[in-house]
Design a protein around this nucleic acid. Structure first.
Lengths: 252, 252
DNA sequence: AGTGTTTATCGTCAGGCAGACGACTATGAT
DNA sequence: ATCATAGTCGTCTGCCTGACGATAAACACT
């Protein structure tokens, strides 16, 4: 049977991004305001069409750079500075997810250290870091008193899936370091876990766990007092990417 | 800006299936022989185009039923008989992965109990269960002495990803029961773990672990001697889907 | 200078769980 | 009857975690 282009329906393929960071002890996601219908004026996850000659990961990295200026980590270069972790999350293809046409969106998850203000085409009012709790809560009011409309399209689901992925993945991997600057203290790393999980962790047990896991953290020799209190050792993420045994997330 | 269909390139979207089962103490995957170019005559994963009005999960369930006769579990109906577990795996979209055109494939992972012979359009010689080791080993010889060509397209990578997902997911979930018939013994479940991980497990510690985890297994009251030896209690998968603490995969 | 506050870091102790492995049981095969 | 095969129950030891006391080193006050 020869190749027949009419044998399959055409789809539009996009990438959507769940970009997470930790700001002021809260897990935050990047949201952009839609400038055009459908869902005009509503908040949505950043994203865009995959180009004709582009790989999915490339498209996600391009969108990430356009929205945040961040460069994605090349996984083959482990010790890169200030780059974001980027991985594929899941693909969403409900026939009715976009009222205009048949769109399949390959969602990606990005984890970034705390950043300066976001930029979306230079217009700051159209992009912001919002606490994920705020974005995921339906029909409430934001911190500015503005009524919260749910995210556009199926982005509520995508964001929820991305947050859940991040929450579970820091259990058994060193991924939490992606939220930290290149040098960080044990306490800063602990506050990342606390923000992502929304729980309080015992500083002494946490310290024992992370410093006792070989290859997880490597001391740089320096110290800092930027968190106040007694000076803390500075560390860099070690080569180990898997945490075995995993960090245990406390029960509710 | 109005909707402009020329603003995005058209893609073909397919679903590919990694269907795993355990046969004769080996983890096996379903492979079909390609009847047409490209890669004519080579083994490949089953799959097909997503239809215009179909969700991705629906398309995967339809392909699974066409290839194996299995019906996918509806996740909302936990205690279903003889259905396969089906979940989305990952999406593959390299621009050159299909030489004919731009194809994005949403791979799915299916886990099934041991089945009778596969059927692919009624022609048995064009579908088979093959040990994943055999399918993944490049350039060797199969058990029939036939030289092994690598799988078509990027299906080697997809299969490897699916196997890795299955291996890690049975650690912390009750997913291994998806490889078992509706009633099974502790020993049969243990042999599933041994086949998937390729290791030997201590029968006594395994028994203690699975029977000691509340909600994992519920006894049916019956016993069987189908494995020989002393009669063994029959169990059914319990409601618990998460295994906490997880089953530990032995070090190499 | 002294006092309080904050954060970091080290230590101790008890409980839970996993790995190693001994012992016993109940079937079918020879 | 004896053996081989599988299943099931226990014991012991070592590791890891959670709870928490104690000390250390900075800064901000007074």
């Amino acid at each position: 049977m020869p190749y027949d282009p009419s044998a399959f329906p055409p789809f539009a393929v996009t990438v959507d991004l769940v970009v997470l960071t930790v700001r002021r002890h809260a897990l935050c996601a990047l949201a952009v305001r839609r400038g055009e219908p459908p869902f005009q004026g509503r908040w949505a996850l950043p994203g865009g069409f995959v180009r004709a000659d582009e790989d999915l990961a490339q498209a996600a990295a391009r969108e990430l750079a356009e929205e945040t200026g961040l460069h994605a980590h090349d996984p083959s270069v482990p010790a890169q500075d200030n780059g974001a972790h980027l991985e594929q999350l899941a693909t969403y293809g409900d026939p009715k997810r976009d009222p205009r046409m048949r769109v399949v969106s390959v969602a990606h998850l990005a984890l970034a250290p705390d950043l300066p203000a976001p930029r979306a085409g230079g217009d700051a009012s159209n992009a912001r870091w919002a606490p994920v709790e705020e974005l995921l809560q339906q029909g409430g009011y934001g911190r500015d008193g503005e009524p919260m409309a749910p995210l556009a399209f199926d982005h509520h689901q995508i964001l929820a899936d991305g947050v859940e992925r991040a929450r579970s993945k820091i259990e058994y991997s060193s991924l939490a370091t992606a939220f930290c600057p290149s040098e960080f203290t044990v306490g800063e790393l602990r506050r990342v876990y606390e923000a992502v999980w929304g729980v309080a962790l015992d500083p002494r047990n946490f310290h024992r766990k992370v410093t006792g896991t070989p290859g997880f953290l490597v001391p740089t020799g320096g110290t800092t007092t930027r968190q106040g209190g007694r000076p803390a050792q500075l560390f860099r993420a070690g080569g180990a990417t898997l945490l075995n045994p995993p960090m245990l997330r406390p029960e509710v």
